[in-house]
Write a protein that binds this DNA or RNA. Structure first.
Lengths: 620, 620
DNA sequence: TTGTCGGCCAATCGCCGACAA
DNA sequence: TTGTCGGCGATTGGCCGACAA
């Protein structure tokens, strides 16, 4: 845990602020400012700069937000993805109201908020759909004033310090030891002529709640301490606290070392999980040309589903192609250092061509890596920080070289630009594994890995409908395969629902040994003899997996399918096509299906010391 | 705050239980039971009886709930009313999707839950819209089995005591003083030969969390005390606690003196407040003939918007007319006594004739009085316990005399029976005030009153649309009325409903060992010898599982079926086909509908060692 | 029968400088 | 410069019976 101290009165040490942001990846921020405006509610139109800085200090250095008035692209698919991760409903049960995969909107408002339950920061973004923005719209027409114009704090952030809380700081035995420079820069000056100079500090947290501390300068040698009041703060904030200052008083913020499980308040999570139809408010807003709200937790690991329009257009115009090298930075939960990883894009596809054809969601962009549901030993999924992919040379650590000729097998590179993209990779569905290159922490028994693999289609039944190619990934150390312990199957049978029928059946997969067995058994259960085996009869079989994703039956190896399936669905082809709004089935897309394998090969590590973990190249 | 103590092992003192419920209007319930089944999750199909009793103890004596399988009337208007009370959106902004004001549904499931934030009880009701129930449907067609068939605890509730916590009980200075009778009835017997006999008690709260207490008998004179562990419980539960017992252990529940501001968890409140379109899920469910969920907090003051169908029909057929005298009971926040009030109906109207024409919401029924937002001095609004209005002579305190000639002003009495009803009264809109008649508490500066007034239409613009007359009420106070504890079965049996029969049966699956046994038993129960075994006789057996899915009986291994089944349904083949939403694609596919399920033939179990995992063969 | 209190012992809190990394 | 610790006084926790309502 760390602490930031910021004094608005001093604005000269930009580099200090920057380095602080660097260090404050996990911890608490403590800041002091000297402005005198009254305490501002979160709904107040004017948000003080120190509140802004505090919020960003808590959010972490990787968080950037659009500004009011910016045009952004909203991805309902991504929103749905976030919602369904909390919801008992599968995405299949969440109607999409025929929403377009990309919704161009203007940011009417953006509120920087904090979860009262755990002080985690989050935002409420108010969007006004603007149908007049089209994908083809030229950048010139929009001007470039919005370029990179995100609501990040200014570099000229004044005094602010970070300190990782020590055991002594958080124990009940004593108070908080204030680094000397921090106290001198950020606290009112004490009268050092006294034997034990002291004063009372009053600080506000992100909720506006005041905290009082006794600040004393004592000991031999002398040092600054926060004594009375500190222990209460530690316990109330659950042992992890940050502090910020504002409004002539101190301000407190919190950023915990570990990624939050619940970045959003339960009340908001519930709003998306208890009612599977939350997207209808978006549909309503679009038809009524009115606003809608989106909640987003930058600290939680969900991918950004609101993306600046400029970056979106840039990505469209500069599609990532197979073979593109990349590097990405990310934050580790348990380690103070920033890690980097790199790799090569090996494939692209639509994530869900049924419901969201032509969606650019996660195809042209992605976000921070998602580790929250995993132990430190295993990293399953890697996303890309969307903006940074194309920000090479702008201080970003993401490097985008031209596509190389790196290739393997006979994978064609003819990727339609409208469909190209970077796909996430999931270890759980892998056929191959990438060697680990780096341990994340010595004291962790397992080693962490950024898994990366590819799912290989083995069934031609769905040819032309699924562009099944996946991408790659990268591993860092430790090779523990993700085990789905979540097979909470109290039942030995898997439920099967047939479209149109409220009555489900159940089937014991352990008694079957192949997909063929499954088809025969399903045909028998539903008296559909011959109808499922033959794809021309118009039936399709899908399933919901352990992550609530709707998948096509037959892609995975049989035993892996059995491990992850939670429910099987029998649908008519017509119904499946309804999920596939206007998707073109042609040779171009089909070709992707036929390319199978994937192999990857670890490249040499360029790392020195350790900070930036070695890049890994994956190729197909 | 009060405490209930309940010992399942003793079931003989019904009157004690009743008086306990009487006293426990506010406080905590503490109960001890001796059953030995393992801790049950809230999603478990079988809920222990002590959990049920604890829940009801926490909910308070006025809470009654429909049972699974009951037909109810769902009022989206009332639901919207509840939602908008939390929401930043006005009801006007919440689309109603052209829902009918009354939606007839069958209760598929009802879960008794508790708010983890504050232990307040609430329920999740799963409803399946049943369009075939019409307002005009005769009671006779439905039979009377559902009459008063609410899921309230039985009269035979065993040992349970109530105690209002004293200052000493909740201070940090000491422990909890257990009333002697309570300790003797509900706690394991101590060895009184010892000088200071003591033992450790373990209790579970509604969330299944265990709490341990040292129970000691000491002092001069001797008394029972809970010492070690008590103060932690007090602080964790925020100074107000109740306790209940179950499963061979103690159980803890909480019912606070004051009505909760947040009966529902924030996550659920948020789901209705952040998204103004939550009713769309209802609309979707109706069009898809699928289920939807309703959350309801009996302790919060919202009016019931799910009402038993029978009571609804009764109210329709016996409309309250202007001049009807009534009496109603209600709970006071600050006073342990039950209060009664009485009055005369002076007018009726549609509450919102614009959005909800012909709505019976609150016109034919109403609920507990709503005081939560008011100080003790003024009681503004009075609702009627819907069911009791017509329950005169059944132990209810509501008396319904014939309409008197009571009238006031020149309010016309021409009330169409289809529109007549009792309207709530709101002081805020009153033109006249009814004198207060009784102080509720001497130490309250103001006097309590059940405000009662009348709103007089002053604008003829709405003539013919708004029958604006209101009613009023009179404060009585101090009058304790009889308690009507509805008995309902806490069943070890699984209910079976046969299509076309309003009378359900129950079957003890633990006495059966195979599907074959089940079929034979079902045939015997319903005098259907030979009809179920033979699939060609046109009958099908379905069941509702713990996840509320409707499944075919026979697919799962027998013991797993027993674990997850919550209700068994015997349907005709025709009816099952109706559940299949017409999806004619071609003749081929149609064929599978006609054959549908189901016959099963339980094979002999070949298992050794695992008796119940017998394979089951199903053929069609 | 039980609510409140004084007595009293133990545990913890939390402020201090010493000391050393 | 600052993390940890021993010392130690103050506070609180919490068990006991006395006493009286």
């Amino acid at each position: 845990m760390e602490i930031d101290l910021n004094d608005d009165a001093v604005t000269s040490e930009a580099e200090k602020s920057a380095s602080c942001n660097e260090e404050c990846e996990k911890g608490a921020a403590f800041a002091l400012s000297s402005s005198t405006c009254s305490s501002s509610g979160s709904s107040s139109a004017r948000v003080s700069s120190s509140y802004l800085e505090l919020w960003h200090a808590c959010a972490g250095p990787l968080t950037s937000l659009p500004k009011k008035g910016n045009v952004v692209v909203y991805f309902p698919q991504g929103h749905l993805e976030q919602a369904s991760s909390f919801s008992p409903f599968s995405p299949m049960e969440m109607p999409t109201y025929d929403l377009q995969p990309q919704i161009f909107s203007r940011v009417v408002n953006i509120q920087l908020l904090a979860n009262k339950e755990n002080d985690e920061v989050y935002t409420q973004v108010t969007l006004l759909p603007r149908a007049e923005y089209l994908e083809g719209k030229e950048l010139e027409e929009l001007g470039t004033d919005e370029e990179g114009n995100e609501a990040t704090p200014t570099k000229s952030t004044p005094h602010m310090f970070c300190k990782t809380l020590t055991a002594s700081d958080t124990s009940t035995h004593g108070g908080f030891s204030v680094p000397r420079r921090a106290a001198e820069d950020c606290f009112p000056r004490l009268d050092y002529k006294q034997q034990r100079p002291s004063q009372e500090l009053v600080a506000k947290d992100l909720h506006g709640v005041e905290w009082k501390f006794r600040h004393i300068y004592r000991g031999q040698p002398r040092r600054h301490l926060l004594t009375t009041g500190w222990s209460i703060f530690v316990s109330q904030k659950n042992l992890v606290s940050e502090m910020q200052g504002e409004n002539g008083e101190l301000r407190l913020g919190i950023r915990r070392a570990a990624r939050p499980r619940n970045g959003l308040p339960e009340s908001i999570v519930g709003s998306q999980s208890y009612y599977p139809n939350f997207l209808s408010s978006v549909a309503n807003a679009i038809s009524a040309k009115s606003m809608f709200h989106v909640f987003y937790s930058p600290r939680a690991s969900h991918a950004d589903f609101v993306v600046p329009y400029q970056k979106y257009i840039k990505s469209i115009k500069n599609p990532v192609t197979i073979g593109t090298r990349f590097k990405m930075k990310f934050e580790m939960d348990e380690s103070p250092e920033r890690r980097c990883t790199s790799g090569i894009v090996t494939g692209m596809s639509d994530l869900d061509p049924y419901k969201w054809p032509k969606s650019k969601w996660r195809c042209l962009m992605a976000t921070k890596p998602s580790f929250h549901s995993l132990g430190p030993e295993v990293i399953q999924t890697a996303y890309f920080p969307y903006g940074d992919i194309h920000n090479a040379g702008q201080g970003s650590s993401i490097l985008c070289s031209k596509p190389t000729n790196f290739q393997r097998e006979n994978i064609p590179f003819n990727t339609p630009s409208t469909q190209s993209g970077i796909m996430r990779n999931e270890v759980g569905r892998s056929d191959i594994t990438i060697p680990n290159e780096q341990k994340l922490q010595d004291n962790i028994s397992g080693t962490a890995s950024l898994g990366a693999n590819m799912r290989i289609p083995k069934d031609d039944n769905f040819k032309g409908q699924v562009k099944a190619c996946k991408l790659f990934g990268i591993s860092l150390s430790g090779e523990t395969t993700a085990q789905n312990l979540q097979n909470s199957a109290k039942r030995s049978c898997t439920k099967v629902h047939k479209q149109g029928s409220l009555v489900g059946r159940a089937i014991d997969l352990s008694r079957l040994s192949s997909y063929n067995d499954l088809l025969i058994e399903l045909e028998r259960l539903f008296s559909m003899e011959g109808l499922l085996i033959d794809p021309n009869k118009g039936w399709r079989i899908l399933y919901t997996d352990s992550e609530n994703d709707i998948m096509v039956v037959g892609d995975d190896p049989w035993h892996e399918f059995c491990d992850v399936v939670s429910k099987i669905h029998i649908h008519t082809q017509d119904e499946v096509e309804k999920m596939t709004i206007g998707m073109m089935i042609n040779d171009d897309t089909q070709s992707c299906l036929e390319q199978a394998p994937v192999t990857m090969e670890a490249s040499k590590s360029s790392s020195v010391g350790q900070p930036d973990s070695s890049p890994t190249v994956v190729r197909m």
